[in-house]
Simulated assay, not measured.
Amino acid sequence: MTEDAVRLRSVTRRHGSGGTSVTALDEVSLAFPRGTFTAVMGPSGSGKSTLLQCAAGLDRPTSGSVTLGGTELTGLSETRLTLLRRERVGFVFQAFNLLPSLTAEQNVALPLRLAGRRPEKAQVREALEQVGLGDRARHRPAEMSGGQQQRVALARALVTRPEVLFGDEPTGALDSRTGREVLTLLRGMADRDGRTVVMVTHDPVAASHADRVVFLVDGRVDGEVTGSPAEDIAARMARLEAAPC
């Protein structure tokens, strides 16, 4: 086992070709150590989501390499990449993406069923208990608040016991109180469970829950801070957004 859960080396991602091509990531090198919580911030269009997708194996870099737990992703076939994501990676997005016709426990069990595994009731209940929803297992999404739905989405991401949990604006659709609850859960996953959490966010308060904040500008890393309060993170973001292109 390596010390880094995920490592990107000189990752470039271009969309399109010729004169119309757009460079979303430009020679990005980053490491996400095991058991840490990293927030990724930057102005709109800076490449945050592309970084997350390349790191998680959802998108392939144009050049460079991505390693997850010692496994080089770049050369994997689509089949092997899909298997790796199912077994070792969890995803949480701003949109909860729950199936409305399924109960909370059925939604949580879905990744196991998609992987051809028979979900163990105890494993599903354990994932729901982890996010404080053990008593809502039989409820459907329409019977739950937005915060509860996002916690079900978290439980669904955790049920396969992934090495790394990726979040793309996971608190973006939540009010401040329920957002804090989800962030506390993410913080606990790193501190208590030793899980690696990588979260894209535009919210300095959300970012302040992380061990470090990495800033992207125009597809390039523009420094990072550790242990900074939300006010300092907000001030840095304001300077980045005001900088001339």
Rank of each mutant, 00 (worst) to 15 (best):
T50W: 05
E169H: 01
V11H: 06
Q130R: 15
E27N: 15
G194E: 03
D135Y: 00
P33C: 09
L110S: 02
A206V: 13
T23N: 02
T2V: 08
E224G: 00
R88H: 14
T184F: 00
V131Q: 00
S10Q: 15
G116I: 11
A153E: 03
K121I: 06
T38H: 05
A173L: 05
E105N: 04
S17N: 02
C245Q: 13
L174P: 09
A173Q: 12
R177S: 10
T201E: 01
V217A: 13
R9M: 10
V225Q: 12
V40S: 02
L114G: 02
N107T: 06
P61K: 11
Q106H: 04
L81I: 11
G16N: 06
T36F: 01
T38L: 14
T36M: 02
T184C: 06
R239K: 14
M41E: 00
G16D: 00
A122R: 14
M199C: 14
F32E: 00
L154Y: 04
E27H: 15
A39L: 08
E143D: 12
E87D: 15
G227S: 07
Q106W: 04
G116T: 03
L51A: 12
R138Y: 05
L84W: 02
E231K: 13
S21H: 09
H209F: 15
F93V: 07
L76Q: 06
T36G: 06
D222G: 02
A115G: 13
L30R: 06
G194A: 06
A127V: 01
T103I: 09
V221Q: 10
